[in-house]
Design a protein around this nucleic acid. Structure first.
Length: 651
DNA sequence: GTAGGGTTAG
């Protein structure tokens, strides 16, 4: 840069600073700064802000602060800049300056300080400031509420909101949005509904942000139809409205509908990264490989292929669709792999019951200098459990605590109970639970109950169930497990008793549903649904296969449609919908083409047998991904160890 | 004349 020969106007400095800032020209920028500080003793606010903005972009906050004689507005900018960069130390420095320069009575300055402290998780400081503030406004309250909400303390957020209401402060749309978000994460439907009513009364409902968070709240409280209703009422839906409803449907197991909304959205709006991640997640849940690949092509074309969560979402898509080949291509193409990338691919092998490969991968991950996190170990425990690698699993449990200093949480304990129990070490599993340093939750007992089902240990299973229902009598999954334990053990009277209990408590099991992709689009099959136009043909194919199985000397699986006496076998909650999906795929695809099915429940033993047989006689590879694992059928053999490790043990 | 604080979706 040339020396300036003429007196330079402020405007010129500002332009120069902007050029340096945008070109990240640190040295030149610093030279301009030193020239400015030599040529003038007084900085105008505009010049100060330009300098500040440049230094902030360079990450040099100290210079940023020293370069100016800040006023109130500049102070708030500096504070929010330090929050943006997560630099609490600097923020504290500014705080000190605020006190010295007597800015401390300004509400806005204090609000930004509260925000800064709570966003770095320093609630002690934020609360202290908040309490000491002579005059608080709605922004101060909202800063506290959203601070709690975003940093994992949603209950404190709701509490603070109640306090605010008590003190007679009127909330605005941002307050409502923040507290609704907290209700969403807590599943506080009652409070959420009250806020909805309040929004109607105060007309705050007119703000799209309020409706958007209502969509989130209702979705997370499992009332996705209510969310749809709110969505329809938004006159000008923005990207967040669409993304909220797409992910709302996704988390309520309505991914196919979610994709429908995604398509519709694209007619009028451009999806952003968050939308794309939600859409990819929906694709992954229903095995929509072709559509997912289209999105992949689209993100590559628009240069977003390696932005933020996109690479890992794509990886997850391929793993869940059972395409480990694509998954590896994606994994290797992604240069900035993080621990999640490794976790996704590890989970893939865990779901396939490939403990050996998972443990090799774990070693590779360590060798490449990636630090495992708690999810890594959950994946590892699952892999070990499904492969019967008990000793290895227990060893990882020690390694996790001792080498990686990760304190086991309830999920880890549940995994270990599963590891021991599945392998038949039920007594050890019980002792393990007794020695836990915290109160076992329903999931821990659920792992034991599942093991009891596998090993037909009715009495111990009943004990586990009793512990579960004392804490959680709402989750249907545990009733299903208990029913299956009884039915596997031939205790029909008990099965009927549990089912009656479920009815009395108004609990229903999701209907069985299977998805299959044929010629690029996904078709859904509900168990027992005969409304599909090709039902007759599908049934004919399945009956034909039944015949062939009979001739081949197989035990004939019962036909789900003719299934009248329900509580008579281990598969009462399977629904057999995968049979319909497979039948449909066989009719509509060319011979030899692999069939990939995804289902929302566990696959029962009968279906497992039947699919094994089908894969043999029609000479097709058939993949069924159920809620627990992948079953890859080929030549009459399943990848889960023919009948699955746990199935063999239970015989 | 303009500017600063709290803002929803993964």
């Amino acid at each position: 840069m040339e020396e300036f020969r003429v007196p330079v106007e402020e405007e010129t400095y500002i332009s120069l600073l902007k050029v340096c800032e945008w070109n990240r020209a640190t040295q030149e920028g610093t030279r301009v700064y030193s020239r400015i500080s030599k040529s003038t003793t007084h900085l105008s606010i505009r010049l100060g802000n330009a300098l500040l903005s440049m230094f902030v972009r360079f990450g040099n906050l100290l210079d940023a602060c020293l370069s100016i004689d800040p006023d109130l507005m500049t102070m708030t900018s500096v504070i929010s800049a330090s929050e943006l960069l997560g630099d609490e130390k600097f923020g504290r420095g500014v705080h000190g300056y605020v006190i010295k320069a007597e800015f401390g009575i300004d509400v806005s300055v204090n609000n930004s300080l509260i925000q800064m402290y709570s966003s770095v998780g320093n609630f002690e400081e934020a609360e202290k400031l908040f309490c000491r503030m002579g005059s608080k406004d709605v922004v101060s309250w909202t800063a506290m509420i959203s601070g709690y909400e975003k940093n994992g303390l949603p209950d404190k957020a709701v509490e603070t909101y109640n306090q605010m209401e008590f003190e007679g402060v009127t909330p605005d749309e941002i307050t409502i949005a923040s507290v609704l978000s907290a209700c969403a994460s807590l599943g506080l439907l009652d409070t959420g509904i009250k806020l909805h009513e309040l929004s109607n009364k105060t007309r705050l409902i007119e703000y799209t942000i309020v409706r958007n968070t209502l969509i989130e709240m209702y979705s997370k409280c499992r009332l996705v139809d209510k969310a749809l209703e709110v969505f329809k009422q938004i006159p000008e839906k923005n990207v967040i409205s669409w993304t909220s409803i797409i992910s709302g449907l996704r988390i309520n197991n309505r991914s196919l509908e979610a994709l429908k909304f995604f398509r519709q959205m694209k007619l009028s709006l451009k999806p952003n990264l968050v939308t794309l991640v939600a859409a990819l997640s929906a694709c992954a849940r229903v095995g929509a490989l072709t559509y997912g690949k289209e999105i992949h092509a689209h993100v590559l074309r628009s240069g977003l292929g390696f932005e933020e969560f996109i690479p890992n979402s794509l990886l997850d898509l391929y793993v869940r669709c059972g395409r480990m080949d694509y998954a590896w291509v994606q994994f290797n193409a992604h240069k900035e792999k993080d621990v999640s990338s490794w976790n996704i691919i590890l989970t893939g092998y865990a779901e396939r019951g490939d403990g050996k490969l998972a443990s090799d991968l774990f070693q590779r991950m360590i060798d490449e200098g990636v630090n495992p996190d708690e999810i890594t170990f959950i994946a590892l425990f699952c892999a070990c459990s499904k492969s019967g690698m008990v000793d290895e699993g227990l060893e990882y449990f020690n390694v996790m605590k001792n080498r990686y200093s990760i304190t086991p949480n309830l999920k880890h304990y549940a995994c270990i109970v599963d590891l021991l129990g599945r392998a038949g070490f039920l007594q050890e599993a019980v002792e393990f639970i007794e020695k836990m340093p915290m109160k076992p939750d329903p999931a821990v007992w659920g792992a034991l109950l599942n093991s009891c089902r596998i090993h037909k240990q009715v009495e111990l299973g009943e004990l586990a169930a009793k512990c579960i229902f004392e804490m959680d009598s709402e989750s249907v999954g545990y009733y299903v497990l208990l029913c299956n334990l009884y039915s596997d053990s031939g205790k029909w009277y008990e099965v009927a008793r549990v089912r009656k209990m479920m009815n009395e408590r108004g609990l229903t099991v999701d209907p069985g549903c299977s998805w299959v992709e044929v010629k690029g689009s996904v078709h859904a099959f509900l168990s027992g649904d005969e409304s599909h136009p090709q039902t007759t043909e599908i049934n004919a194919v399945l009956e034909g296969l039944d015949e062939r199985m009979k001739t081949a000397g197989f035990e004939i699986p019962r036909n789900s449609l003719a299934d009248k006496v329900e509580a008579s076998k281990a598969d009462i909650f399977c629904g057999h919908s995968e049979r319909l999906a497979i039948g449909f795929a066989l009719i509509n695809t060319v011979p030899g083409m692999p069939v990939r099915v995804t289902k929302n429940l566990y696959m029962c033993g009968d279906c497992h047998n039947m699919v094994k047989f089908i894969s043999k006689v029609v000479r097709r590879e058939i993949t069924v991904r159920d809620t627990e694992q992948f079953h890859h059928f080929k030549y009459g053999i399943c990848s889960c160890g023919d009948e699955g490790y746990w199935r063999r043990l239970s015989k």
